[in-house]
Design a protein around this nucleic acid. Structure first.
Lengths: 142, 142
DNA sequence: CTGCGTGCAAATGGTTTGCACTACG
DNA sequence: CGTAGTGCAAACCATTTGCACGCAG
């Protein structure tokens, strides 16, 4: 469980007003180790805070994304999924299930950065590079 | 305009039955240079074939995806987009608009393949790697 | 105080589906 | 011929939104 105080600080750092709902949502995100859907977050919250509204959670998630506090994940599926980790990282997508895992690899980051520093893409300024690695997990989730 | 005969062949190669609707949809996809949404495809088709049904187009697109004839692309926006190109390639995503362009780079492919042949990911078998390059186009679409 | 954030519920809109009919192979 | 594909319209469902109220700064 992350200290609510540090959550407050992070929200303030992003220029966001502190509200109980925002703290609850952020905490729920931090406690989800995988990449939850909005519905996952809502269900997790509802058990302890039944009074929070669905629309509010969606609005908060969207606010967080705009403030770069979290990010949205693109999959071929139609539900949006969210990611609290802010460090540069990539993702492993399972093509047989909806499992998604983080993939941290500093060497890969360096290699790509180096590659694209030399090889410019004509007429395009790169802000960010995300590698989507699609395949199968050999062992099922513990 | 791609020769309908070769379209037939491609469908047959994928084990798909030939129907006029499938040929029309595939032709529309081939004629869209960018990465159309289902709605784009439907609108393009409706002008010449007003009788084709929306549900049918969605079903055909889904069939094509399952047969690996085309692929789905997801953006931070919530609409699905489709891609007819079957060669290995990556994408440039504009963070200011919904523009998406193909990015072909054989050197990049070789580098990544080489990298991941050496560095295995524990407990994961890689099928495919897609690089999402996010940034801004310096020149607007002609 | 003042306006942004919230709860609620209704609306939205892209996508899916049930059913009867059609036509591909 | 039999079964997979289609048209149509209704259903679905994740997400958004309008409005009145509440609370953070």
């Amino acid at each position: 469980m992350t200290d609510p105080v540090s959550i407050r600080e992070r929200l303030i750092d992003c220029g966001l007003k502190i509200t109980p709902q925002r703290i609850i949502v952020y905490q729920a995100l931090l406690e989800s180790d995988d990449h939850p859907t909005a519905e996952n977050v809502i269900r997790k919250i509802k058990s302890t805070h039944p009074n929070i509204s669905v629309g509010t959670v969606y609005r908060i998630l969207e606010t967080f994304v705009k403030s770069k506090l979290i990010s949205k994940l693109k999959t071929e599926k139609d539900v949006m999924r969210f990611d609290v980790r802010t460090e540069e990282h990539h993702h492993l997508f399972c093509c047989e299930s909806d499992r998604i895992e983080d993939y941290h690899d500093e060497n890969l980051n360096r290699m790509l950065e180096e590659y694209f520093r030399r090889k410019r893409i004509q007429g395009f300024r790169i802000n960010d590079i995300k590698v989507n690695i699609v395949g199968q997990f050999k062992v099922k989730k513990s």
